[in-house]
Amino acid sequence: MSLSNILPIFKRELRSYFNSPVAYVVIVVFLIILGWFFQSSLFLMNVAQLRVVFEYTPLMFLFFVPAITMRLLAEEKKTGTIELLTTKPVQDVEIVLGKFLAAWVLLLATLLPTLLYVITLMSLGEMDFGPVVTGYIGLLLVGGVYVAVGLLASSLTDNQIVAFIMGFLFVFIFFMFDKVLVFVPQGIASTLEFLSVDYHFSNIARGVIDSRDVIYFASVLGFSLLLATVSLERRKW
């Protein structure tokens, strides 16, 4: 694996986001929706807090991330450019990583303007920076996991709409694990809770970065990328 192979793929993919309306639509719509929640808590309820950012962003990622990732591999398969890419002296895992990083950076670019809220709130009073920093780290980890899972969905099909719907389903399952705990037996409940993205995110967003949470995110992310690579190699079977 070498960076000199991953980098061109990453750059092409990122440029393709910003050369098309995709990046701008995602960023603008995301900020409009989040801005609405933020201002309503600020002006209507007179509460100056960043909680809305950390509460609603993972929810919005459920829709936005599969929309970002759906084309990554599905489009290349549809148009046949995957054949060009995989016959270059580049490993399949480098292709997957390059594309993963591009979508992740787009997500980062989407989150960046929300720092304005942090600046706004700083001017209104004292702020506890610990949870804010860990909250953003948590959002990036959640986003990373969702991008990896969405990329996996995109590797399974050559149809972008199928990739979107499957991607949404996959991330929705990870999101729902800790929402169904009351319906399942005690024994499974703790396992389900541990599998849930939201459970680990809320741990981190509280201000504590526990290695268990980081390991959870890293392993789900890594495993999804591994599966996406294997899925890309299916042509060889």
Binding site: N19, G80, T81, E83, T87
Partner: peptide, 11 residues
């Protein structure tokens, strides 16, 4: 390699 149907990145 020039694959069949010459796939290219149109963007």
């Amino acid at each position: 390699y020039l694959p069949e149907n010459n796939p290219l990145y149109h963007d």
